[in-house]
């Protein structure tokens, strides 16, 4: 009896070790994002058509689509898009250029840091939209005030991201540069700037999204053409189809900007592990 129990005991206690690793590692799923979009729109389409959602609450998605087609065919799309894109590009370009430059100054010079960091911290939380009337008085009702608003709004997040990125550049690489007697300019251009690039680019992602928000805000005040003006007009007439058409254009613009930065990252940051 003791014999059988002795020989069978080991076999019965052979158990595979249970797997408990895995997970916590995001994997790319290409089409899921698009799928969520499409199914949400389909659900809304069905519900609005069935009358479960009234046309006062949400427009029928296909109507919004036809509004967009009409906008395109009438040539008004360009009429609204060109001034909007100009404002976005000029404003964001000024804001980001000045922002990156000031951020690098803060990162490199203690005096600039001591003087400017509190200033930037004071400017950052001001809702720039609240300053719009002031900008109109300073820069006039036409394009300049719109550029200024977008530039001002993108400036602060860019500064903060840039000096953070410069601070995070590996100090051992800078010491290496000094140990080979590289000039100050060489160290900044060849070590500090490329090292700060990942942080600067992820800052730009945020700044450009803010730029789109401010674009619409700026156009709601005294602009004849532009996506913001288009949306405002539709809103005041309670024309939901056109309102949503405008919002869809803004979303697509946001996705395009994000893709642009993504492409830029892939090209500039090929070296990243």
């Amino acid at each position: 009896m003791s014999d059988t129990s002795r020989s069978s005991a080991p076999t019965s206690s052979y158990k595979p070790v249970a797997f408990r690793g895995g997970g916590f590692a995001p994997r790319p799923h290409r089409w899921v994002g698009l799928g969520v979009f499409v199914s949400l729109i389909l659900i809304v389409e069905v519900l609005t058509r069935a009358g479960i959602i009234t046309s006062l609450t949400l427009p029928i998605p296909s109507d919004v689509f036809w509004t967009l087609v009409e906008l395109w065919q009438s040539g008004m799309f360009y009429k609204h898009m060109v001034p909007s894109l100009t404002r976005l590009v000029v404003g964001a370009l000024i804001g980001c250029t000045v922002g990156v430059s000031v951020g690098i100054l803060i990162g490199l010079f203690s005096l600039a840091r001591a003087g400017l960091v509190p200033l930037v911290a004071a400017i950052f939380p001001i809702p720039k939209i609240a300053l719009l009337p002031l900008f109109v008085i300073w820069f006039g009702i036409d394009e300049m005030s719109k550029y200024a608003l977008i530039a001002f709004g993108t400036f602060t997040p860019t500064v903060v991201a840039t000096y953070g990125a410069v601070d995070n550049v590996d100090r051992t690489l800078i010491r290496m540069g000094q140990s080979f007697s590289l000039s100050w300019v060489s160290i900044v251009r060849k070590i500090v700037l490329p090292g700060a690039m990942p942080g600067i680019l992820s800052g730009l992602r945020i700044s450009l999204a803010i730029a789109i928000i401010l674009l619409v805000a700026a156009e709601m005040l005294g602009a004849e053409y532009g996506i913001g003006a288009y949306i405002l007009q539709a809103g005041s007439l309670y024309d939901l189809e056109r309102l949503f058409a405008g919002v869809a254009i803004l979303s697509v613009l946001g996705v395009m900007v994000s893709t642009l930065i993504g492409t830029l990252e892939r090209i500039l940051l090929k070296w990243r592990v």
Binding site: T172, L173, M176, F180, I191, V273
Partner: peptide
Amino acid sequence: LNPLTYVFQDFALLPWR
């Protein structure tokens, strides 16, 4: 070109070059 030259423990290579 550089009389006193270091070799560092953590290599200190620029990852983008």
